[in-house]
Design a protein around this nucleic acid. Structure first.
Length: 184
DNA sequence: TGGATGATCGCA
DNA sequence: GCGATCATCCAG
């Protein structure tokens, strides 16, 4: 079952665990890559000081306030890109950061982009994951239902995944909120 | 443990 | 404009 806007049009903290186990597909000229989502983090609005949306919309973060089920891809530390999916109704900020995948298809393409051997953790860490999938800022604010040579979409797993919850990684503010979700 | 490396944003 | 900061990664 393909995930669309209505799946994301819910409280972010409900969507985040439901996203675990889903398969992410990214198609480019190089071919199709996919992987199972095994780690995510939720980012909310004003109540979440670690969120890019904490101080209201800005040119970068306005997509987080936009309609659900779209991508939010940003550039960080002058080096890395990070992939999110926007949650909640239009006007309400929320997004889910994809932190790790278990690679399923296109491992050769991912390994070439990462300049590493096919074995090992090709898609662990939000920056590494974007590198492996070939995602950059041109993938920001994309719909999951767009067709064409370049596409990104999600297929939900049928089973209800068991997961662990913990605090988020690499933040200074709101660091005690348990908004990180990992597959068991 | 700190350096890479550049966009972003609050504040002046 | 300016500068502190940053949802990271990896070498050493």
């Amino acid at each position: 079952m393909m995930l669309t806007a209505e799946f994301f049009n819910r409280p972010t903290l409900q969507v985040a665990p439901d996203l675990l186990g889903a398969t992410l597909f990214v198609g480019t000229a190089a071919g199709l890559c996919s992987g199972r989502i095994i780690e995510v983090e939720a980012y909310l609005g004003a109540e979440d000081r670690a969120s890019h949306a904490a101080n209201g919309p800005t040119p970068r973060s306005e997509v987080m306030f936009g309609p659900p089920g779209r991508t939010y891809v940003y550039f960080i530390y002058g080096v890395h890109h990070c992939l999110n999916f926007v949650t909640e109704a239009e006007g309400v900020a929320g997004a889910i950061l994809i932190r790790a995948l278990e690679p399923l298809q296109g491992l050769d393409i991912m390994a070439a982009r990462r300049k590493m051997a096919i074995k090992g953790k090709l898609c662990h860490g939000p920056g590494n994951l974007c590198r492996a999938l070939g995602l950059d800022r041109s993938w920001n604010n994309r719909s999951l239902t767009d067709q064409g040579p370049q596409k990104i979409y999600l297929i939900k797993s049928s089973e209800k995944p068991k997961f662990r919850q913990s605090t988020r990684v690499g933040i200074k503010k709101s660091k005690d909120l348990p908004y990180r979700f990992l597959l068991d």
